[in-house]
Each structure stands twice: as structure tokens, then as C-alpha cells.
Design a protein around this nucleic acid. Sequence first.
DNA 1: AGATATTTTAAACATTTGTTTAAAATGTTT
DNA 2: AAACATTTTAAACAAATGTTTAAAATATCT
Lengths: 218, 218
Amino acid sequence: MGEPKCIHTEPELSLENNSTQEKIIAAAHKLFTQKGYAATKTREIAEEAGINLALLNYYFRSKEKLFDMIMADNMQQFVLGLAQITNDKATSYQEKFALLASSYTDLLLNQPEMPIFILSEIRNNPVGLFQRVRLDKIILSSNMFEQVKEAMKRGEIQQINPMHILMNLLGLTVFPFVASPMLKQFGGMNEGAYRDLMLERKKMIPLWVAALLQVKAP
Amino acid sequence: MGEPKCIHTEPELSLENNSTQEKIIAAAHKLFTQKGYAATKTREIAEEAGINLALLNYYFRSKEKLFDMIMADNMQQFVLGLAQITNDKATSYQEKFALLASSYTDLLLNQPEMPIFILSEIRNNPVGLFQRVRLDKIILSSNMFEQVKEAMKRGEIQQINPMHILMNLLGLTVFPFVASPMLKQFGGMNEGAYRDLMLERKKMIPLWVAALLQVKAP
DNA sequence: AGATATTTTAAACATTTGTTTAAAATGTTT
DNA sequence: AAACATTTTAAACAAATGTTTAAAATATCT
């Protein structure tokens, strides 16, 4: 009854691992993301992965440890792109808007339940989860917001709190995925039609955000 | 051991009910909305309400029945205003945008966790929850969207799928509440500063939505 | 092949959790 | 006050759930 070979010492979410470990991670990722931590049972994960229940604790010590890995991976995917794109000095802020809308739309078309999962789990654990991926002031002091502030000074765009820009960009991009079950119902749309709508938005959002920047506060 | 007086026959969420029933509803509303169905335990609700555990089943038969009431109440608050405002024939579509942004902002400032609760629970139960508050095509065939379509014909605004308008309006308004823990961290903001930002948005969103309508598809 | 380490399995354990039971307490009616 | 109905309580129950155990199966090494 030895410890597993190299799992507990390097508990990172990698894909070139043992096959059963992969199966567990894949099943856990699917179920946790779909239903959240509390609603997902260890026996469900084992069944979905097609493995014996005890292997879950053998490889990951506990449900919570397994969850933390899935969550960290989701968080990283969700916020790492943000930091990278906003800090690329080779692009203008308009190009960054387009890149953000584009890359987030692509990401969410493949993993539509990621943001609602992250946001609903964060509310239960507001502390600690951000310590790994600490973006405290990385966003507001990013190259993108420096460029935006410069454009404000030049009078190219209206004076506005940069947080509004971030909220508008993410709101326009992410919200349709967060609220997709409700919005599909509102529009009487199927999966395909909804997807097409998202692809339309991918092109429109940069134009929309640019237009918002021209609106003057009353 | 008789049945409670008039509870099971009129299982609606009203405020002029028995005191202990009120206490249970208040506690359940708080905990369910805060943590979701699966993460909320009946013993927690009883403790929060300051009542004996068995009273929960005495008054509401089961955890699920209690949850359904809380959920229906939340859903109603969230979507009923939408139907009312969008179908008021006395207002222009621009006025409706302002009314929607304003009333939703006020609602969410008082109950910030309502949308994330609704949206995260809907994903677990996509069916059935909408049958009570059926808004299938009420939104798209509302007076507001009739007015918008007219304005498109007149060339007053650009041609666009009306769903985009709904998504933009709700995305700009609701998303900052859905993602508030994350966004507060991004901006390094406290509760008060965040609230002020939401009040600014309340004024800006109608102008922003109006500006979006002028953007031409590429 | 034999020894050793690793992985997998079935079963059990200890809590947790939703619900029920039966009696006690409180309220209402006659 | 007696009889009845309603509400509250403590205790128990049955099922679900996260985890552990010890043995069996499989792989790895010498």
C-alpha cells in the first residue's frame, strides 16, 4: 500500500500523467464545472471516470484537494489570458479589445460553463482563491489601461473610470455565456443558433466597446 | 400531530404569515441565495432561523419544496420587472432602456447575489423552472422590441438581431454584480466604492446602449 | 523467476444529512 | 376546566457521502 509514484509531490494539473489519473481529472473537471463542488459526489466522479471509488482518494487525498486543482486550472485559463493580452506592448488598446473579445469567445465556446462555475464557487470562498493567481492591480496598471488613459488625456476618448471599460468588455463578452440557458429560452434558440450569435458578437464587441468610449457622462 | 393550519394549501411566499414560518423563509432565502441548494443544509437553515429542525419539514414538507418557493420568488423578482417594463406602451424604447438599467441596478444593489444564484441553479435544472414564469417569446415580441424593429425600419438605428440588444443591456447591467467579487479584487475596491460605480453605471448604461445601436455591422 | 513496489478492488467505517416519530408544550374552543 | 387542535421539541431512523482498510492484482526490478 505505497504512495502513488509522483503524484502527491507534484500535484499540478498536467496532461501527460498516468491514464487513470487523467480519467479522474477529466471526470472531476466535467462534473465540478457542470454542477459545482457541493452537488458533485465522489461516487459520481468515480463512475464518470470508470474507476474504483477508492482511487480518487488514492491519487488526490480528498475531494477538496481534487477540487482545488480543477478550480486553479479553470481560474488560470480564465484570468491568465487577460493579463497576457492587456500587457502586450505591441498592440494598440483597440486591438487589445478585439483580441480579448475574440480569445474569450473562443474559450467560452469550448467551455461555456467555466465562468458560471468560477463565479458561483468564488462566492462561497471569496478569500484564498485569488492568492494563487494574484491579479490585484495587474489589470488596472496594465499596458492596455495605460494606453486608454493616454487616449483620454489626448481627448481621443471620453473621461471614464477604467473599471467601467473592463466591466463593459467582460459584461458584453462573458454574460451571454453565464446566462445562456435563460437567454436561449428568451430567444427560443437552439444550440446552433446561439453559437452563431456568439460568433457575431465576437466581431461586434470591439466596435461596441470603441463606441462606448465616445459616450460623454451627463 | 395535525397538519399546519393553512400552509400546505397555499404554499405561496407571502410576508403576512406565521412568525416561525417567516423565520424559516428568511433563513432559507439567505442561505440558499448565498450558497446554493446543495451546499445549504437543513440544519443550517434551522439554526439560522433559530427554530427546531423538525419544524422545517412540518411547515414545508421537504428541503426541495422550500427551495422551490425561494427560487420561484427570486425568479419572479428577476424576470417580472423585465416583462412589465418592456411592455409598457406609454414609454419609448430609449426610456425603457433607462428604466430597465435603473430598476435592475436598484434591485441588485439590494440583492447582489440573486442573479448568480438563479443562473447557477438553472444550470442544474434547465427544465421546469421556467414553466412557472414562462417568458418564452414574451420578451422578443414585447412592445420594446416592436419599437426597436420600427426604429430599424426607419433607419433610426442599425439593423441588428434584437437578442444582441437584450444581451448588451443585461450584460452591462447584471454582469458587474455577477462578477463583483472578482471585479472588486481587480479594481482593489471596497464595498462603498463598488456601489458608487454601480450608481454611475445606472446613469451611463442607457446612453451606452443607445450608442451601441448606432454601430454598423462590418 | 522471485522479490518488491505500485495499482486496483471490495468492503467497511464514521459522519453527515434529510426526514420521521411520538411525546410534550402551547393555543383554542366549548 | 375539559376537550380538542396546533405547534414545538428531542430523539431516532435510513440513506447518502467522504474516507479508510486490507487484501488482491498488476507492474517493475534484480
